[in-house]
């Protein structure tokens, strides 16, 4: 791999240029009339974004979505990490649960929506449950994996120096699984937002997803696109922040791998 060093400023300029090119293509496609006329042009979307930015309804909806996403995510993270460490460190449990875990992680939870709506209704509680159910699997699978792949030398060391179980859990199992836990928690954070919006789109529970479908039904395509764009930005920012945080937290892991 060649590492050509580009100055950060040049890189930024290039990236902005790439985005402008993309917007230009969008504008051209619209202008050519080759696509259905509902699609809004660049200027309309930009205007709509400006409008969304000062709209209380938009921020309220975004807040509701984020709250549901974060609550579900937090529940899934706690449950997933504790269950994952226990399952991953006990061989018997690991083998016994593997089929159920594989089933759970491949299950499209959004397909359960009609059932969940029947049981819990179209509200924030239902949304949190669905988000938590979806986020649980990445955390659980990663944590089990992290707890399972304990180095033979580490477990020998723990045995020889007769480290008591609780100390072992806290100072050996948890930190050694932490890189995997962090990845699982990070993955599930983006899942949380995607699922929360999906739930709102399907169930019409209040939030940004509902706003998007409402705008679309009112033929306000520019607003719908603006909202979609915004949600994408929020998800992107969340992922970037978590990645930073993870890198900082796991400085020993990165150093060791160098």
């Amino acid at each position: 791999m060649k590492e050509t060093t580009t100055s950060p400023r040049l890189l930024l300029a290039q990236r902005v240029a790439a985005i402008l090119i993309l917007l230009g293509i969008w504008w051209l496609v619209i202008a050519s009339g080759a696509v259905p006329s509902m699609l809004p042009g660049v200027s309309q979307i930009l205007a709509a974004i400006g409008k969304a930015f000062v709209s209380a309804a938009f921020w309220g909806a975004l807040g509701k979505t984020l709250l549901a996403a974060l609550s579900g995510w937090a529940i899934a993270a706690v449950v997933g990490v504790v269950a994952g460490l226990v399952i991953g460190s006990i061989n018997f449990l690991d083998r016994s649960t593997s089929i159920l875990v594989d089933f759970g992680r491949s299950f499209p939870v959004l397909a359960l929506m009609p059932v969940v709506i029947m049981l819990l209704g179209s509200n924030a509680r239902m949304e949190i449950v669905v988000v938590a159910l979806s986020c649980l699997w990445p955390v659980l699978v990663q944590t089990v994996y992290g707890a399972r792949r304990q180095e033979a030398a580490v477990s020998d060391t723990v045995a020889v120096f007769r480290i008591p179980p609780l100390l072992r859990f806290r100072r050996v199992l948890l930190p050694s699984a932490l890189p995997f836990i962090a990845t699982g928690v990070r993955i599930s954070a983006s899942v949380a937002l995607l699922i929360a919006v999906g739930v709102e789109v399907i169930s019409q529970a209040p939030g940004i997803g509902r706003q998007i479908t409402l705008m679309q039904q009112e033929q306000r395509w520019d607003m719908a696109f603006a909202y979609l764009f915004f949600t994408g930005m929020v998800g992107w920012a969340m992922a970037a922040v978590l990645q930073r945080f993870e890198n900082r937290l796991l400085i020993w892991k990165r150093q060791e791998n160098d």
């Binding site: 699609l39 937002l193 699922i195 998007i212 395509w221 719908a224 979609l228």
Partner: peptide
């Protein structure tokens, strides 16, 4: 490599767009 670094944020943005919300839009348009 240089192209990859330039379009990297765009790819990550598209990945973060909620797919489920896209469904009614695409169906509505197409």
């Amino acid at each position: 490599g240089w192209l990859c670094r330039i379009v990297d944020p765009i790819i990550h943005f598209f990945r973060s767009v909620p797919q489920a919300a896209l469904v009614p839009m695409i169906i509505g348009v197409f």
